[in-house]
């Protein structure tokens, strides 16, 4: 079969010890039997490894942080688009999603397709909105509250007992066993990620996760459940295994069906000893372990591109159970020329 040639722009190329999903997404795209893709990397830092991984990324461009404003970022995207004729853009950072969701129509006018959650979907699944989300969609969630001042930790009352989880609005979570610890984590996370800080009830059990893709009409195109087998000190999976858990899939279908979820997502769940599932977080994008789904038979990045371009996509119905991923680190030898090119010219 002749493959369809496309150009895909991908961010999240920080393939470091707390990796972004960019490279795993690209690996899925590279394995597509349908598309032959030119991959354009969008990087924020000079040392994002993906920019130097020439087997995976054909060309990389530095882009300004979304915090510098949508206008500046879009100007840069337009420049890159003029050179590269991008068909699909897959942003992979939580912190850039808002900007790209807001810019989706403008991107489409330029001919750049995305397949992102709607702004409503993006907003209502925020950690700070989790209680309302649980109530609206009939999903078990831990009690949680967004706070903006450290003194509010003292005013939480009897609803919140220690241990409790202190979370950043985008990233980071720590379990605090005392008020003193909670204060330390509040300051640490607020300094790094800003306010609000989310205080969440600690649910005892095992963390399990699902990577899934919704078509925006309530259908689940694919879903693969996983348990982390080895977790780094940053709480990231270094190894994981696919599970056979109909209840996790049922919950995923329920959430995607109810919310009409559009795009990739990761569900973070706690399975208690009573086998109840609590939703603790929805990440509104494919996670860094998405390549496990590809390895288990569901090429979700390829399916996402098809959805973005309007191709019909049949939902995946199976995946292999008991497939593992084990992450590894690898020292690339890179030329000074490459580093210089990205630093000075903003492209590589």
């Amino acid at each position: 079969m002749m493959k369809t040639k496309i150009t895909v722009a991908v961010s999240g190329l920080n393939n470091v010890d707390s990796p972004g999903p960019g490279i795993p997404v690209i690996r899925g795209i590279r394995e597509s039997k349908f598309f032959e893709s030119r991959i354009v990397g969008l990087v924020y830092e000079n040392l994002e490894p993906g920019a130097y991984m020439h087997d995976h990324v054909d060309k990389s461009y530095k882009v300004p942080y979304p915090s510098e404003g949508r206008g500046i970022l879009m100007e840069r995207i337009r420049d890159i688009h003029a050179k590269e004729s991008i068909h699909v853009l897959i942003p992979n950072f939580d912190s850039e999603l808002y900007v790209f969701i807001k810019a989706a129509s403008e991107l489409k006018r330029l001919g750049i397709h995305t397949f992102l959650p709607t702004l409503q979907q993006f907003e209502e699944r925020h950690k700070s909105n989790l209680p309302e989300f649980g109530e609206k969609y009939h999903v078990k969630v831990p009690k949680s509250r967004a706070i903006t001042h450290i003194k509010e930790l003292k005013e939480l009352g009897e609803d919140y007992e220690y241990p409790m989880v202190i979370k950043g609005k985008f990233y980071d979570a720590s379990i605090a066993y005392s008020f003193e610890q909670a204060q330390i984590y509040f300051n640490k996370i607020a300094f790094k990620w800003g306010l609000p800080i989310i205080v969440q009830e600690y649910i005892r059990g095992t963390e399990v996760n699902v990577v899934a893709l919704g078509d925006g009409r309530g259908n689940t195109i694919g879903a693969v459940p996983m348990k982390k087998q080895y977790i780094t000190d940053k709480g990231k999976a270094w190894s994981g295994i696919t599970l056979d858990d109909p209840k996790m899939l049922e919950l995923t279908h329920h959430i995607i069906g109810q919310t009409q979820w559009r795009g990739g997502m990761e569900l973070e769940l706690i399975r208690t000893d009573n086998k109840e599932l609590y939703l603790i977080e929805i990440n509104p994008r494919l996670p860094a372990w998405v390549y496990l789904a590809v390895g288990a038979g569901q090429n979700l990045p390829e399916a996402l591109i098809k959805l973005a371009l309007g191709y019909p996509v049949e939902p995946f119905t199976t995946y292999s159970v008991g497939i593992l991923f084990i992450r590894y680190s690898y020292d690339m030898i890179c030329s000074l020329e490459d580093f210089k090119s990205l630093t000075i010219r903003g492209e590589l």
């Binding site: 095992t206 399990v208 996983m226 348990k227 087998q229 994981g240 295994i241 696919t242 599970l243 056979d244 858990d245 159970v321 008991g322």
Partner: peptide, 8 residues
């Protein structure tokens, strides 16, 4: 080798 696919 015993594997429980529900819990992993």
């Amino acid at each position: 080798f015993v594997f429980d696919p529900t819990t992993g």
